[in-house]
Design a binder for these strands. Structure first.
Length: 355
DNA sequence: CATCGATGTTGAG
DNA sequence: TCAACCTCGATGG
């Protein structure tokens, strides 16, 4: 599951690929037929993320609200600009990857399977990208491939006719809950935990229940809101970081990593964490979230050598201090990393560094 | 090929 | 506290 950075990347991708375009909305799988009907044919006028929730706005005053949950993912295909890093409508960055998935786990990404395997094309090539749960990319080239794409095809074993036979839009693969189709780009959603159409007031109600998001709230307001919730409860900080009403976007990976980075014991009651530490946590989340949006991966280790950094981006196993490292020696003190279940989720930490 | 597990949330008991 | 939701890569045979 994508943590906050993935959702921001997805919203950015929608801005870059669909902004201002009339969209054909359907539910190939059928489970969202009614909702799709309400926004079908409307113009997409915006997309934004708040924590792990995404809202796509249409010109008829309605919004598509999506939460990927554990397995959800979006697949983009067609001829579009790849740039989940910024909100600009055109990305030039070539971006990265695609995947968006996230993190670590993902590895797959790491493998570059996805899309990105390479440095992607910038030109809008194609391709596709899958953002969401870790997943191998389905390499599909659709639409009229640009020269770069053709070149690649020529170098591979694929024949040109493969290109000609790939029509746009591609047929939905698997259970596609929602398909957003514009003239040159298509986005398919599968496996979401939440997919619904809301009006403006309902969107506000959802957002009102969420804690601050560094990419939505100002540094001061965000820090204040976070501190306000943390300092007056006895709930353990390890639980508070996962509570979306306390702070938005943090998931199981970022939680464990942030606690280690702050050298904080997960069991410390919120009201016993020094104010400066609480505010430092907020600043760290801000830093990690921005980094995740740019990198398309959860890189939570600092000060790595050039070589180690490159390796970390390649393998999820080298990207974190404690996450998923039960029984392995702490990278700082050598003590075996512990794992315990908390609220149904696995929490990893170093009993010495985070005493 | 069968089973497990995962970056998450909700709602029942 | 736990099952359910729902998908697919990883793992093991």
């Amino acid at each position: 599951m994508p943590e906050g950075h993935s959702v921001h990347r997805i919203a950015n991708q929608f801005q870059a690929s669909f902004l201002g375009q009339r969209v054909e909305v359907s539910s190939p799988q059928g489970r969202f037929a009614e909702g799709a009907k309400r926004i079908d044919g409307a113009v997409l006028v915006g997309a934004k993320a708040v924590g792990k929730q995404m809202f796509v706005e249409f010109d008829n005053g309605l919004y598509l609200h999506v939460h990927l949950g554990l397995y959800g993912s979006w697949d983009f295909a067609g001829d579009f600009s790849l740039d989940p890093t910024t909100k600009s409508a055109n990305g030039r960055m070539g971006q990265t990857n695609q995947r968006g998935t996230d993190p670590d786990t993902d590895d797959d990404q790491a493998g570059g399977a996805d899309g990105d395997s390479g440095p992607v094309d910038s030109a809008g090539e194609d391709s596709w990208k899958s953002i969401g749960a870790p997943r191998k990319a389905r390499m599909m080239r659709v639409g009229k491939p640009l020269s770069a794409a053709r070149l690649r095809m020529a170098e591979s074993e694929k024949r040109e006719d493969d290109i000609d036979t790939e029509a746009f839009p591609p047929d939905p693969v698997g259970a596609v809950r929602v398909r957003l189709l514009a003239p040159d780009v298509v986005a398919d959603l599968r496996g979401p935990t939440k997919c619904e159409v809301l009006d403006a007031s309902e969107v506000d109600a959802v957002i009102a229940k969420l804690g601050p998001d560094p990419l939505v709230d100002s540094p001061k307001k965000g820090s204040d809101r976070f501190f306000e919730r943390v300092h007056k409860t006895k709930t353990k900080i390890g639980l508070l970081l996962m509570d979306q009403s306390v702070v938005s976007g943090i998931g199981n990976v970022y939680r464990a990593e942030m606690l280690f980075r702050a050298r904080l014991n997960p069991h410390t009651p919120g009201n016993e964490v020094p104010e400066e530490t609480v505010r430092a946590l907020w600043r760290d989340w801000t830093k990690l979230l921005k980094s995740g949006v740019e990198l398309g991966q959860m890189m939570t280790m600092d000060r790595l050598s050039k070589k180690a950094y490159a390796q970390a981006l390649r393998s999820r196993d080298d990207r974190h201090w404690v996450y998923h490292r039960e029984g392995l020696p702490c990278r700082v003190c050598g003590t075996n990393i512990l794992m315990e279940e908390a609220a149904g989720r696995k929490l990893y930490w170093c009993p010495v560094c985070q005493a």
